[in-house]
Design a protein around this nucleic acid. Structure first.
Lengths: 214, 214
DNA sequence: TACTCACCGTGAATTATATCACAAGGATCC
DNA sequence: GGATCCTTGTGATATAATTCACGGTGAGTA
């Protein structure tokens, strides 16, 4: 593996490649070309090869890639071979939905706990977990060695939530609250902003509408 | 407004600026500098000014921007002044959670209907809407002039869902299914991939872990 | 073994995006 | 009304990401 800096866009694509290779594997496809991966993921074959080149050589010239082999490598690169423990904080509808989302489990993420400040929610069963009170979060992260946190609390409570998480040792946070959060340099933060996504779509719709007026 | 192509990253940031201006407005702040906007959104002041420059001049040299005025313009640019009608297809937990998510409503998006293939869900009440059967989707989009669709069905059903939507006239789609979808050129598609987000975090955690081994 | 084919891997060229740095210009003060 | 201050708006510069294009190489064939 080269020591150069890898674009985040590349990492996102690797994850998408891996998901598609997974599908191919399940369909019994054993070999695939960069062009075929590109077709399945709306990219270019050169892009696929460049992305992979950051991490080594996985293909055979003249032939292509062995699906299983490549997928195994991608999962390794993405850190999906070791189980990743996750807590969800905020047991609103979104938190519960994520808790029960299959997409996490079958990619190696284990949701170990779900927490909420609201004592009236505490004790409620969600799937095979029980909603725990916030004051237990710190201890839970430490004893279960939780690495990742998902934040689905309201914007106003988001910063204090990530503060608790990071002080307890969480190293990566996926934030759904519409708030710009501050974390230490060694903590990786990603924001999923649902309204922003709709607004970007709205912007492009506006462009089309203006086109139509000509 | 200049006719040049605007980076999508700029649009995303404009949406974030607008959200923060909204907060400022609610807090009674009346003027703001590009530096202050940058601080609130983890960016640089030059970036803020460049982003705004694509659309015109909104500030006063030596002073800064008038919060209300700038936010009004940003909302206009993002197409949030005219109400945007949305349908959600897939009344699973995620679909219901999004249906009830306040973040959409207070940014001008109106969720007008929620649909599901599963007849056992049809008739169920979600907030102030009732889950409708899929076969009514096409007609609903046409009669209510729906512009945007949110897809929260399983991956296997996602393509047929967007086909129905786009044939009925939907012009923008927010897709949560982990599937690469194909749409006509005049339809704008955005994917929100929950597992991909966790996998990107997992990748960066892996990097840190490897650092630690040295 | 020599020949051909197919497709990968990658340096070079291009395009896109972000940062820098400063001139321009409105507000304020004397 | 002129001088000073401050922050915008923007051309020039630097950085980053993507695409191009082709050389290199293993596999298959006869």
């Amino acid at each position: 593996m080269k020591a150069e800096k890898i674009p985040e866009a590349t990492i996102i694509r690797l994850s998408v490649y891996s998901r598609n290779l997974q599908y191919m594997e399940e369909m019994g496809i054993t070999k695939v070309s960069s062009q075929e991966i590109a077709d399945a993921t709306d990219g270019s074959s050169a892009q696929v090869r460049k992305d992979l080149a950051y991490f080594g050589e996985f293909g055979t010239r003249g032939v292509g890639y062995e699906v299983k082999h490549l997928n195994r490598h991608l999962k390794k690169i993405l850190g999906l071979t070791k189980p990743r423990s996750v807590v969800i904080v905020g047991a609103g509808r979104l938190g519960k939905a994520l808790m029960l989302y299959n997409g996490f489990g079958n990619r190696g993420f284990r949701v170990m706990g779900i927490f909420d400040k609201d004592m009236s929610k505490v004790g409620e069963q969600v799937g095979d977990l029980t909603i725990s009170p916030m004051y237990k979060l710190d201890q839970f992260i430490k004893t279960h060695n939780i690495q990742m946190g998902v934040v689905t609390v309201p914007a106003a409570a988001a910063q204090e939530t990530v503060d608790i998480m990071t002080r307890a040792g969480v190293k990566a946070i996926l934030n759904f609250a519409p708030k710009n959060l501050i974390v230490a340099d060694d903590v990786k933060l990603r924001n999923v902003d649902l309204a922003v996504n709709l607004e970007v779509l709205s912007f492009y719709m506006g462009l089309e509408e203006r086109e139509g007026e000509k």
